[in-house]
């Protein structure tokens, strides 16, 4: 047998290769700052924004970006604790607010939530969590109206894709800088922006129920979920991912959550009657406002 050639083997995507999620945090920061300035001050008539600051990494990053885009004096951080919220959450939120020098207000939602649930003593944790999330949405919009400001959302792409949020609650604000960034990418951005490590490194929690963590609720670690989402969203099948070495149980959880929550990423289904149905046939961008053709 003659001399055998060295073999160069082709590769497949590697579940351990997290570099596919890498972002250039400096470029991304510039981009999101420009996006916020444009959405808030150019396409809408505002100078001030309202951000619900929970003590978690998503709202911390959002507050940082808003402070850079609009000046800290034009950012109102709203802390909205419930009586069972973790004291750490409130402290971490304050850490972010003081670190940025933004304005702040604390609105305790306990009375409002408890008042609503007084006649529903048997409400499940899920229902109670939804009421809290929607109460925070009401507070944010009300504070926005009070300060002639616009609420800025903090939801990331991972929770949006997994449906891990309250419909018309966390997702309600009309401007969202993080909605196309996976949790792993938000963390990378947080470290670039100088968000306190105590906020970046702690286990993410919706903090609706004491001791709750996102990853326990979801059933998959964010790092793994993000890798799986990265490939699933490009159109690769769950079977291919398992073939590449992804954990079958994790892939199943992520795929099931995505497929069961498409409705959450859409506006309500509206019965179509005419040939000018809004959003079906009559399509105009949100910020399209041509000069009036007729005197108004």
């Amino acid at each position: 047998m003659g001399v055998r050639l060295p073999v160069v083997r082709g590769t497949q995507p590697d579940p351990a290769d997290h570099s596919v999620l890498a972002v250039n945090a400096a470029l991304l920061t510039d981009w999101l700052v420009a996006f916020l300035r444009d959405e808030v001050t150019v396409r809408r008539p505002f100078r001030t924004v309202v951000v619900g600051v929970s003590g978690g990494v998503d709202s911390a990053v959002t507050a940082h970006l808003c402070a850079r885009a609009l000046d800290p004096a034009n950012v109102l951080g709203v802390r909205m604790p419930y009586r069972t919220s973790s004291p750490d959450s409130l402290e971490h939120a304050q850490l972010v607010i003081e670190g940025l020098g933004i304005r702040s207000v604390t609105v305790d939602i306990s009375d409002a939530v408890d008042g609503l649930l007084r006649s529903e003593p048997d409400a499940s944790p899920l229902r109670r969590g939804n009421v809290m999330a929607r109460m925070r949405m009401i507070v944010l919009f009300d504070q926005a109206a009070k300060h002639h400001a616009i609420p800025v959302g903090t939801g990331n792409k991972t929770e949006r894709m997994l449906g891990y949020y309250t419909w018309h609650g966390d997702d309600a604000p009309p401007v969202n800088p993080l909605g196309d960034l996976l949790k792993t990418q938000v963390r990378a951005l947080a470290r670039h922006l100088g968000v306190p490590e105590a906020v970046v490194a702690k286990p993410p929690s919706a903090d609706l129920v004491r001791g709750q963590t996102d990853e326990a609720d979801i059933g998959v670690a964010y790092e793994n979920a993000d890798m799986i989402l990265h490939y699933l969203l490009q159109g690769y099948s769950a079977a291919r991912l398992v073939e590449w070495g992804f954990c079958p149980a994790d892939v199943h959880v992520v795929e099931r959550r995505v497929n069961q929550t498409h409705w959450k990423r859409h506006l309500p289904a509206t019965a179509m009657i005419s040939s000018t149905a809004i959003g079906e046939s009559y399509l105009r961008p949100t910020d399209y406002a041509p000069p009036a053709a007729l005197p108004g």
């Binding site: 046939s281 009559y282 105009r284 961008p285 399209y288 041509p290």
Partner: peptide
Amino acid sequence: YFLEGAVIEV
């Protein structure tokens, strides 16, 4: 660019 149905108006 992204004018959707409003292209006819511009």
